[in-house]
């Protein structure tokens, strides 16, 4: 190491990594494309189901808003997904096979028909034409809705990214809860007081589920929980708690002004965005330091 003429600066490797380099690759997806794809798909899914339920209950304004939100959100989600592809022109290759082992294949087969059906339904609602076809399309989209809001959690968990894979029990609850609060957020902003009670209830349920599951992410995953507590992910998930808490507090009384409803809705939507960007950031952080790969695997093999 200290030969003459050669600077003694070559780092001698340590026993727990190769020059501190990552072992697994950082997700090859882009930000904001993929976090937006996750967020928009979730909002669209719950909105479609909300619309499908609201229609027979006579809540026409809620049904119309849900239908339009589902169409807009899912088409935008699809757009974000296509934009993220290395070869966008080959998007349709996603539909050349159906592979249950690939959550992205399953997801494409959910997202593509969902966005088509939601768009048909929204077109019918906005133009007043083809009402039967539109209602039928809306109903099927409503059935696909809950899957839209949860398959993205499997998409992330089915990777070697430590913070995502080890969170496979919690992530679907986080994403479903967040999708409910976000969909309720759109309704709180756009609709009159008459419809605010049911959507506030929906938001409260979603918020409770999401915050409880997110708490588990920060505490139950051993060393990997660090990635949800510190850095960019830690800040974003802290913001989720504050924003979601504010939303619940603003709508808790049920007698809320238009401004309070809009603020609560805005807080819920911002929280939904922070959730997706936060979870994404935790995944990235867990790939950058090899200890999140090595230490849990060493423990598994009984050597510490």
């Amino acid at each position: 190491m200290s030969a003459e003429g050669r600077p003694d600066r070559t780092p001698v490797t340590t026993n727990d990594s190769y020059y501190g380099l990552p072992i697994v690759k950082e997700p090859a997806w882009q930000q904001p494309d993929v976090p937006l794809y996750l967020f928009l798909g979730g909002v669209a899914g719950v909105s479609a189901s909300m619309a499908a339920l609201a229609r027979p209950l006579g809540r026409d304004a809620l049904a119309k808003l849900g239908t339009v939100t589902a169409a807009t959100g899912s088409v935008a989600s699809l757009g974000a997904l296509i934009h993220d592809l290395g070869r966008p022109a080959r998007f349709l290759y996603m539909l050349r096979v159906f592979k249950p082992t690939s959550p992205l294949s399953v997801g494409s087969w959910i997202l593509a028909p969902f966005s088509a059906l939601a768009s048909m339904s929204a077109t019918s609602v906005l133009t007043g034409k083809f009402r039967t076809v539109g209602a039928l399309a809306g109903a099927v989209a409503g059935i696909l809705g809950p899957a839209m809001s949860t398959y993205t959690a499997v998409l992330l968990a089915d990777t070697a990214t430590p913070a995502w894979h080890e969170a496979y029990r919690e992530l679907p609850v986080v994403f479903a809860g967040s999708a409910m609060t976000s969909a309720a957020g759109v309704a709180l902003i756009a609709l009159p007081k008459r419809d605010s009670a049911p959507v506030s209830r929906l938001a409260a349920v979603g918020a409770t589920a999401e915050l409880a599951a997110a708490h588990r992410l920060r505490t139950r995953l051993g060393i990997i929980s660090e990635t949800y507590r510190v850095g960019r992910a830690g800040s974003l998930l802290k913001a989720v708690e504050v924003l979601t808490g504010a939303g619940v507090a603003l709508t808790a009384t049920g007698r809320t002004s238009r401004i309070a409803r809009a603020l609560a809705g805005g807080a819920y939507l911002a929280a939904g965005l922070c959730t997706r960007f936060g979870v994404y950031a935790a995944g990235v952080a867990s790939t950058r330091d090899p200890k999140y790969v090595v230490e849990p695997q060493r423990e598994r093999r009984g050597r510490v």
Binding site: M50, P103, P146, V154, H165, P172, M180
Partner: peptide
């Protein structure tokens, strides 16, 4: 990672059922 995929889909299905229950209950 796909070794745990069946468990992942089960959790996602449970969560999706939770969304349905929450929507029905709220509305």
């Amino acid at each position: 990672t796909t070794r745990d995929l069946p468990a992942m889909w089960r959790m996602a299905a449970l969560s999706a059922a939770g969304v349905v229950a929450a929507l029905v209950g709220s509305l």
